[in-house]
Design a protein around this nucleic acid. Sequence first.
DNA 1: CTTCCACTTGAATGATCGGTCAATTGTCCT
DNA 2: AGGACAATTGACCGATCATTCAAGTGGAAG
Lengths: 209, 209
Amino acid sequence: MNHKTMGRSGDTKERLLQVGFELIWNQSYGAVSVDQICERARVHKGSFYHYFPSKADLAVAAYEEHWREKQPELDEIFSAQTPPLERFERWCAHIRERQRIRAEKYGGVCGCPYGSLGAELATQEEKIRRKTQELVERTIRYLESAVADAQRQGLIEPGDPATTATRIYSTAMGYLLHARIRNDLALLEDLAPAVLHLAGAPAAAGAGG
Amino acid sequence: MNHKTMGRSGDTKERLLQVGFELIWNQSYGAVSVDQICERARVHKGSFYHYFPSKADLAVAAYEEHWREKQPELDEIFSAQTPPLERFERWCAHIRERQRIRAEKYGGVCGCPYGSLGAELATQEEKIRRKTQELVERTIRYLESAVADAQRQGLIEPGDPATTATRIYSTAMGYLLHARIRNDLALLEDLAPAVLHLAGAPAAAGAGG
DNA sequence: CTTCCACTTGAATGATCGGTCAATTGTCCT
DNA sequence: AGGACAATTGACCGATCATTCAAGTGGAAG
């Protein structure tokens, strides 16, 4: 182990990152106080500022840490071993399941963590805007390669993969935001069809009833 | 005039609504204080609470008032005299122009006012969640009737107009949120093509380069 | 003129905010 | 054993928050 010293438990920083992400996603950056995060993480305020210079820095670190934890799942969902169009379906199913679990747990639809934080702070905290932008772009890379694969296999119409991937991500983020606003998971039933339609998959083109 | 008495200027409430909407859209609900709103509106705090029982109530009233002012523009954009697909194009052009003007004025892309407020407060302030939901649904009604008209004229593929309209709105809201996060208006160049593709317009199907 | 009341004023409230700090604890290294 | 230092503690700070309120102001109605 390279951690030179460990005062006590050693996972204090981890707990702050975890709790911070959960609370901010669920509520909002402004609605969550540093005290609240510390209380839920069973950490004293001094420790918070020992690890993070500011609340905004915690948010950035918490989101980055969340990505780090969840990236393996995305790697699997977008595995090159999976047929391209099935990757989209699995991605949408993953999103829906995640939302369902959270909505059940907290009693309300949470929506997209990047979207919610970005919407709130993009014009206020440049650090946070940049981080959310970065995480969005990382996700779009998965979509882009899936689009390119699907095109090479003739599964969808040709076009610029970057544009199509951005279209798909924007739509998914919009659906999640819409679901949060309506507080209704049912909206997400149309997520996969909409995404496949946007990708240019011929079979799923209709707005099914 | 039926206003029984008028202390002084008579448009105090109007100014609070106007300033409140502008600041909240631009920044966020949490980042804007009642003091800030009062200062910019040149109104004393006591007057604020004479007109509105709380900050949340001001936000709700400000958003409703904004809709009231902007509804005529939507009525015109979605006029039955306009060919259905052209309505979508005009709507997208209207959104882009609005965003361009605001971005120029404030130095940052503002995104969708309903989306941003809803994302921030949907799980915290039920009053505000309901109002944003209501405004979103009102807008979707325009899209829905345009979709229905386009279908009857054989311009797009058949399908449930409500589903298609919701798809289109979610996507537009997602684009605006994405543009706010990236702080880049260029993203909106693809808004109209994406919307027309989602509507099912045959010509605009490709993700143009 | 006088009564009335919507409206305005500006100070004050207590709570909570993000952030600071000096003192202490515990552990590793020598 | 003892120095060094990361980690922890908990009190503390001034600023700002949403909200309250009592005292004024001025026009309309009787």
